[in-house]
Nucleic acid binder design. Structure first.
Length: 709
RNA sequence: GGCGAGGUAGCUCAGUUGGUUAGAGCGUAGGAUUCAUAACCCUAAGGUCACGAGUUCAACUCUCGUCCUCGCUACCA
């Protein structure tokens, strides 16, 4: 959007089932905060909202685990997360939460509006049900033994030990976490958003935004190309927003339906009870007095900051909801970041592989801007990034301390020593001075252009370049020498240097808000706006400066070693757990007579005779790449040698089956799997524990091609 | 398997519509300097632009194929 009248900026609603770590900060909250601070300093009308997403299954699971109610869980983490944001200077206008009554009311209304318009389709599906607890079970509520690694605590959607994604059907000995009962399938009705029907208008919307980041646009096009499918917007669960429809008792809104509406609710909330979170920022509160202009006026630019895992919800599903509701503007941009790794491995809340913000602050008190700086400089804008403590130390010491802090300090100290901390007069600019001042005046636009284009890393680099310009200027002009021979000239040089410090104090505000404040205090400067940073005379001659302090301190090796060691301990634990899991995969589950499959209905001899079953021998076998269940076999059937794919890779290695005699159905219609054609089917016996075994003749003279009748 | 995003200097990353010697910061080496926490300033070394073909007078850039990383999504008769 070319010239928006105002901005609505959202930062992803964070899920309230744990504290917040550096990945969250780097991926979403830091870039959005920088963006918003910049806009506010430009004098733009901005509303910046975020909050916690407090519904959904994982919250209820966490509550059970900790012996709390879901509400107690989200209360706990809301407070922790909120404090972390305040501590790191993430300045939302409002930081709300989806468990508030106002949100329940509004998201409920939103749903009802769509319902009344006849948007939803009703569908009955089979879902797992706990007959003892008398409620439907989300996949996560079903645990059992993982068929892959024998972990007895695998969830119905995923085994956390080996990482395989599962469906409840695959679990061995599945049972409900609520009662321990065996889940059964029951029919239930839910309301679906017909994304398939909405696809054309979504396609138009996405196509209208070629300027989106390639990872975002690509992901959207990928979904569209696949063809969107109707998606259930309600769930059988008791934690969430009740579905406001008759016959929907015991159902709540799908968490991804109500969460994005949370942005709107939060916005509304600001206008009914404005909250003053702005303890540091200058410039800034939303200017309009009605929440609706931030969501319904087409001159409002709506921007969602999120991580890449949320792309589909913010670029397709939420826009679809807004479109069908009518009256709302759509996101103008969704600058989703990739992920940040920690020392080469994916951050993980559940595995404790993370740097938690509250812990960081305890161990590195007062070093918020250091972390902000480092995370922005490795911001995963285009590809996954990596955080290491060595890199953290290097960037702080060699850039923040050596370049930024040092330039300010040497300028301040020279002024203090020689001119009693009063800004000296600039008598007459030389060509050299003018070149520097002219160059410096370009920075606000240069940095601003990068920020407007969501290139935060580049913007911050430019900020450092201004400090570099200052350092070079000092080295070139050498005022510490000149003071002995040319006082007038020296005064001018220090005046110019101090002006650069003043400009820095303004331009560093979005990135380093705490430092900006310190620097302004040192310079005895009030709150200035972005355009003023183009000035070369922010500090008047004679203006009194305060005592110089170092803006940043070097981080010594001992402090870094502590952190590195701490991670090493966690990594050791994780490795040990992984090894134990692999070991646990060895023991075989026992057969369970109570789980023998029920008898099938009667068939006829004719029906059976259609099956051409033969004895064959496996000649070659290999794993099918990227499939964990399939082996690709070459089988001699006596009639021919053919390729057969068989889902036995979890039970046999390729080496084990070469030369193995098998029973094979040879007249089965060929079928393509994972890109290979399978011409037949190997018959296997399966016990109640899900173990497979070949079915073979007991005599040795039954050769390939022998029939089975 | 399908789809999407990546793979550029030891590290973190730029590289616009194909056009001379592929850039920045950090790290490394050398020099200069001493106001500043040995910081700053100057200079240099360092890259078969993942790999292989092709189009072109010319390819990091376009096309096709292969390999690797990450993500989404499936199959598992």
């Amino acid at each position: 959007m070319a010239n928006p009248q105002r901005y609505t900026v959202t930062a992803a609603l964070i899920y309230a089932n744990g504290p917040i770590h550096i990945g969250h900060l780097a991926g979403c909250y830091l870039p959005s905060d920088i963006y918003v601070r910049f806009l506010r300093m430009k004098g733009e009308d901005v509303l910046f909202v975020s909050g916690t997403d407090e519904h959904g299954v994982p919250i209820t699971l966490r509550a059970r685990k900790e012996g709390l109610t879901p509400q107690q869980v989200v209360d706990k983490y809301y407070t922790v997360i909120d404090q972390s944001f305040r501590d790191f200077g993430i300045e939302f206008d409002i930081y709300s939460r989806t468990s508030r009554p106002a949100h329940h009311e509004f998201s409920s209304q939103f749903f009802r509006h769509l319902y009344d318009k006849g948007v939803f389709t009703e569908q009955e599906t089979e879902q797992y049900y706990d007959p003892e607890a008398k409620q439907f079970l989300a996949d996560r509520y079903i645990v059992g033994t993982c068929p892959h690694c024998a972990n007895t605590n695998a969830y119905g959607d995923q085994c956390e030990k080996c990482g395989t994604s599962l469906s409840p059907d695959e679990l061995i000995n599945p049972h409900s976490t609520l009662s321990g009962a065996k889940p059964e399938k029951r029919n239930t009705k839910n309301w679906f958003l017909p994304l398939d029907q909405l696809q054309p208008q979504l396609q138009t919307y996405i196509d209208a935004h070629p300027e989106w980041k390639s990872n975002v646009a690509g992901q959207c096009q990928s979904w569209l190309k696949d063809g969107l499918r109707p998606r259930a917007m309600t769930r059988d669960l008791d934690w969430g927003v009740s579905v406001p429809v008759e016959g929907a008792e015991g159902k709540v809104l799908y968490v991804w339906f109500d969460a994005p509406i949370g942005y709107i609710t939060a916005s509304k909330e600001w206008f009914t009870q404005p909250e003053t979170r702005n303890t540091l920022t200058y410039g800034g509160k939303p200017k309009s007095d009605n929440w609706e202009v931030y969501w319904k006026d087409e001159n409002t630019k709506l921007v969602h900051f999120i991580g890449k895992d949320n792309i589909v919800f913010h670029c397709l599903i939420f826009p679809a909801m807004l479109q069908v509701h009518g009256g709302y503007i759509l996101p103008d941009n969704v600058p989703a970041n990739e992920f940040l790794n920690l020392a080469g491995d994916k951050l993980s809340t559940s595995r404790n592989w993370a740097i938690w913000l509250h812990e960081y602050l305890q161990e590195m008190p007062g070093k918020q801007d250091e972390l902000r700086y480092v995370l922005t400089s490795i911001s995963p804008e285009n590809k996954d990034g990596d955080f290491t403590w060595d890199d953290f130390q290097a960037r702080v010491n060699n850039e923040l301390v050596a370049v930024f802090s040092n330039f300010v300090h040497r300028t301040m100290v020279l002024t203090q020593k020689n001119y009693g901390s009063k800004v000296p007069v600039a008598d007459q600019y030389t060509k050299e001075d003018l070149v520097v001042l002219e160059e410096a005046a370009k920075f606000p636009d240069r940095i601003g252009a990068a920020l407007s284009a969501y290139r935060f890393r580049e913007a911050q680099q430019e900020l450092m370049n201004l400090a570099r310009l200052g350092n070079k200027y000092l080295s070139d002009t050498q005022p510490w020498k000149l003071i002995k021979t040319d006082d007038v000239r020296t005064r001018t040089i220090l005046n110019v240097s101090l002006q650069l410090c003043a400009n820095l104090s303004v331009l560093c505000m979005p990135f380093l808000p705490f430092t900006s404040k310190k620097l302004r205090t040192m310079l005895n400067l009030g709150e200035l706006n972005w355009e003023q940073a183009k000035s070369t005379t922010l500090l008047a001659a004679g203006h009194t400066l305060t005592e110089p302090v170092m803006l940043f301190a070097k981080i010594d090796d001992a402090l870094i070693k502590q952190q590195v060691d701490k991670l090493a301990v966690i990594r050791q634990q994780l490795d040990a757990e992984k090894a134990a899991a692999e070991l646990a995969a060895a023991p075989k589950p026992m057969n369970d007579p109570s789980k023998i499959e029920a008898a099938k209905g009667e068939t006829s001899f004719d029906e059976f005779s259609k099956m051409d079953i033969r004895i064959g021998t496996i000649l070659e076998a290999e794993r099918v790449p990227k499939s964990d269940k399939l082996l690709k076999l070459l089988v001699d059937t006596g009639l021919d040698k053919r390729t057969v794919l068989s889902g036995i890779a979890k039970h046999y290695t390729p080496e084990q089956v070469i030369g193995q005699q098998v029973t094979i159905l040879v007249n089965l219609a060929p079928r393509k799997m994972m890109g290979h054609e399978s011409q037949g089917m190997i018959l296997m016996a399966e016990n109640t524990a899900g173990e497979l075994s070949f079915v073979v003749p007991t005599k040795t003279n039954v050769d390939n091609g022998s029939t089975v009748k």
